[in-house]
Design a protein around this nucleic acid. Structure first.
Length: 574
RNA sequence: GCGCCGAUAGUGUAGUGGUUAUCACUAGGCGUUGCCAACGCCUAAACCCGGGUUCAAGUCCCGGUCGGCGCACCA
């Protein structure tokens, strides 16, 4: 282990130098909040994404969909992003500091700032002092800063579009199609991996806060009364440290307990949330996050979105940035589907059939259309509607239409009591949403993998990447670049590639240098062809972390390397 | 956005306003080399961008961009 105060800089340096990530469009000057993944970074990121797919698409059976990254305005009106994703801001005329206008107002004792319009708020904060320079603000302009990138769709810019600030909305608006795809059954889920965009005011911290970033989100639609996960037994006994809201308020350390216990004690809202907390824990460990640098923190009531029933963040500890929110797992209730149903006019419900149809008594009031229609003419429709809701007695029914009280005598309608069969309910599903920040996961993987040790008195830089996320899975070296060793090495490389392995052949310079080069980019295994190979068809396999070597037969190479990379075999057991 | 600090080959760096911009590593070529950054020879490669001051700017000044830190922001 190394103790380095600034792993961040070393990791970023290595990332730039060896082609993991670098600033975008450097020849024109980079742009804050945007990065390029280089050859090795893009490869590693795909591996992380594919492990995510293994868990959600293959494991859970939630199919992946792909929606546009530009959405029309209505989508984000419904989601609340057009209104709620913007902050009311103002600029101090004295020190030119940008300030949150509503925060200034609250600090100055103004009530109801959150609901004020821009002009009203500007007037309200005029007597307040600037929190930065403590001058009296006076006349300022309050303006909205929306964190969404806005664009226009088609010529003439009649139609507003936004770059999506999250992938989630695509799955919500596709609800009807997805429901039919899953043959009208709850629960079901859909997932999406893709770019999202937020026009951050001041992005910082390398790849932690980006203006364009990759999200992997799952939207799991469940019956609101059935939040027990059918496969919960898989994780019922799974333990991990939980930092509940109570623990945080009491400044107590995280508690470790099983998921079963956490749900039973109501620390986690339901089995679904608990299941995905555990699944997330398992996945983050698999990609190489260290258990002691991973915790799950529950949102406090004041940071919980108003519609959410429960929300937990998986936080990964960074030497540079402290605890970084990397995954969010929320029970979003029926908020999103309700919003889109309301905005679009399309019902977003599932018909849940009863085991037995219910017989329900119903009173129906049938108006005498021909008489009432003539009598009330253009008001007739409103009269019929009011009458249907009325509770008539033997003297007739008293209704009110447009403020006018109307008496309908009993001979102008008929009251029918009937028994009808109700076969089920229309239910708005609740949504369980695990949402992963892929870029942050990649950063965590790199930072935690970075290590320096001493080999032969020299410092060795080594990325201890989990074999399953390492960009290059195996390197193949001929000990000498002659005597046929190079052709044997080239053949082995081809064989490995034919098995789908990312194998790299290298015959340049000294063998030690080649090992070091691969150590630095995290290649877990190296095969060396030496003179003994020509005698007995065996090669050495070298382990990156221990630098130990074992001999294996050439024909065993593909199977052995595959098992080592996918984790079904350990090097130490060879 | 504000404030402070910084920016020189791929990386890390030296560089009092005045020669052909220093050194190391890295990378490429050739040779050598029987397992962990070996060696020899050769080669490639940089003053962030735009103004200004000056006879002369990598160096001083102003603006911008990017990066780091603090503030603010982070549905």
């Amino acid at each position: 282990m190394i103790t380095m105060s600034d792993v961040f800089e070393k990791v970023m340096d290595l990332a730039k130098r060896r082609g993991f990530i670098w600033p975008t469009s450097e020849c024109y000057g980079a742009v804050a909040g945007f990065i390029d993944y280089g050859p090795l970074g893009a490869m590693m990121k795909r591996r992380v994404e594919n492990i995510w797919r293994d868990f959600y698409v293959i494991g859970e059976g939630y199919y992946e969909i792909e929606c546009p990254t530009i959405g029309q305005e209505a989508v984000f009106v419904a989601s609340g992003h057009v209104k709620g994703f913007s902050d009311k801001m103002c600029q101090c005329p004295h020190c030119h500091e940008y300030l949150r206008a509503d925060h200034v107002a609250e600090g100055g004792g103004v009530e109801g700032a959150a609901t004020m319009g821009n002009e009203e708020l500007a007037a309200a904060i005029a007597p307040c002092t600037c929190p930065a320079c403590e001058e009296k603000l006076g006349k300022v302009e309050v303006f909205a800063f929306n964190l969404m990138f806005k664009t226009s769709i088609g010529p003439g810019s009649q139609r507003a579009g936004y770059l999506r600030p999250e992938t989630a909305q695509g799955m919500f608006v596709d609800f009807g199609r997805l429901l039919r795809f899953y043959r009208d059954h709850l629960p079901f889920g859909a997932v999406q991996i893709g770019k999202s965009y937020r026009n951050e005011i001041s992005p910082r911290q390398g790849m932690i806060r980006l203006r364009e970033f990759t999200q992997a989100e799952a939207e799991i639609f469940v019956h609101p009364d059935e939040k027990d996960h059918p496969q919960f037994s898989r994780y019922a006994g799974y333990t991990m440290p939980l930092l509940t809201s109570a623990q945080q308020l009491g400044k107590e350390p995280a508690v470790t307990m099983t998921m079963r216990e956490a749900v039973d004690r109501d620390l986690i809202a339901n089995e679904y949330v608990a299941y995905y907390l555990a699944l997330t824990h398992e996945m983050l460990i698999k990609i190489g996050v260290k258990a002691d640098r991973l915790r799950f923190r529950q949102h406090l009531s004041d940071e919980l979105a108003h519609y959410a029933a429960d929300c937990w963040d998986a936080e990964v500890y960074s030497d540079r940035f402290g605890w970084v929110e990397t995954v969010g797992i929320a029970d979003r209730t029926d908020y999103d589907l309700k919003s889109h149903a309301g905005q679009s006019g399309t019902p977003m419900t599932v018909f849940i059939q009863y085991d037995q149809p219910k017989k329900v008594k119903r009173r129906r009031i049938v108006p005498n259309m021909s008489v009432l229609g003539k009598q009330y003419r253009n008001k007739a429709k409103a009269v019929f509607e009011a009458l249907a809701q009325a509770t008539p007695d033997e003297k007739g029914a008293d209704i009110e239409v447009d403020g006018e009280k109307i008496h309908i005598p009993p001979n102008l309608f008929e009251v029918r009591d009937e028994v009808i069969e109700v076969r089920g309910d229309e239910v708005i599903p609740h949504v369980i949403e695990p949402s992963y920040g892929i870029d942050r996961m990649c950063y965590a993987v790199l930072e935690q993998a970075y290590d320096e040790d001493t080999a032969d008195g020299e410092t060795r830089t080594v990325l201890r990447l989990a074999p399953c996320v390492a960009p290059i899975q195996v390197a193949v070296f001929p000990l000498m670049n002659r005597d046929g060793l190079d052709t044997i090495a080239a053949e082995i490389t081809q064989t490995l590639k034919a098995r789908g392995m990312m194998a790299e052949y290298d015959d340049s310079s000294a063998i030690g240098r080649r090992y070091r080069r691969q150590d630095e980019i995290g290649t877990p295994f190296a095969i060396t062809i030496d003179y003994q190979t020509k005698d007995d068809n065996s090669v050495t396999v070298r382990d990156r972390d221990s630098m130990k070597q074992v001999r294996i037969a050439i024909d065993k190479i593909p199977d052995t390397i595959c098992s080592l990379v996918n984790g079904s075999a350990e090097f130490s057991a060879l």
